[in-house]
Computed example of a mutant assay.
Amino acid sequence: MIAFVEHPEALASFSGNAFACRIRATAAAYGFAHPFARFWVQGREAALCLLDDVMILDARAGADFDELAAFLPAAGARTVLCSAEAAQALPFPRRATGEIMALRERAAPVEEAEILWDPSPRLLYPLLCASQTASFLPPPFEPFYLDLSHRTRHGAARSAAIRAGDSLAACAICSAKTEEAAVLSAVAVRPDVRRRGFGARVVLALAASLPVDTIYIFRASGENEAFYRTLGFTGHSHFAELDVQERNNL
Rank of each mutant, 00 (worst) to 15 (best):
F19D: 09
A37P: 02
C49Y: 10
A70H: 11
A134I: 12
L210F: 05
L146Q: 10
A86F: 02
L242G: 00
R106V: 07
E45P: 03
G165R: 06
E6F: 07
A29H: 06
A161W: 00
F39Q: 03
P121F: 00
N17A: 11
A240H: 13
P126F: 05
G43K: 10
C171G: 04
L206V: 06
N248R: 08
T26G: 14
S131F: 03
T152S: 11
N17I: 06
G16M: 11
E45M: 14
S167C: 09
R122G: 06
D118I: 07
G43E: 01
V5G: 12
L90H: 13
L57D: 02
A156T: 06
M101D: 01
R104Y: 10
T97K: 11
L250M: 14
S185T: 08
A10M: 13
R24E: 05
R194A: 14
R151D: 03
C21K: 07
V80M: 08
A10S: 14
V183I: 08
A29R: 06
P119L: 01
R158S: 09
R60K: 14
F141I: 00
A186Y: 13
G43R: 11
I23Y: 02
N17C: 08
L148A: 06
G155T: 11
A107Q: 14
L68R: 04
L128C: 13
F71R: 01
R158T: 04
A157R: 00
T214L: 15
Q88K: 11
L123A: 07
A29I: 08
D64L: 12
V110K: 05
T26W: 05
A240T: 06
A10T: 08
A69R: 12
D53G: 14
A29F: 08
L242K: 01
G98T: 02
G43F: 12
R190C: 00
H238C: 04
V203Q: 03
P8V: 07
P211V: 15
N248I: 05
A63M: 11
E223T: 02
F198I: 03
P138N: 07
N17H: 14
A89T: 12
A18F: 05
V193F: 04
N249A: 15
L184E: 03
A69H: 07
I215R: 04
E246Y: 15
I162P: 02
T152D: 13
G98F: 04
C174P: 01
H238A: 12
I217C: 01
R95K: 15
C82E: 05
R196D: 09
A113N: 10
E9S: 15
A220Q: 15
P121T: 01
S131W: 01
E142S: 07
F65K: 01
L81E: 14
C171N: 04
G232L: 07
A207Y: 04
L127C: 02
P126M: 01
E223V: 00
A157S: 03
C171F: 03
Y228T: 01
A205M: 11
R219F: 00
V187R: 03
F36G: 08
G98M: 06
L11D: 03
G98I: 00
R247C: 03
A176L: 06
Y228H: 00
F141L: 06
A33Y: 09
A69L: 05
Y125D: 10
M55G: 00
Y125P: 09
E45L: 09
G199S: 10
L206N: 07
L204C: 12
R94C: 07
G76E: 05
L50T: 02
A170Q: 10
T133N: 08
D243N: 14
A200P: 12
A176T: 12
A108Q: 10
F71M: 08
R95C: 15
G165C: 05
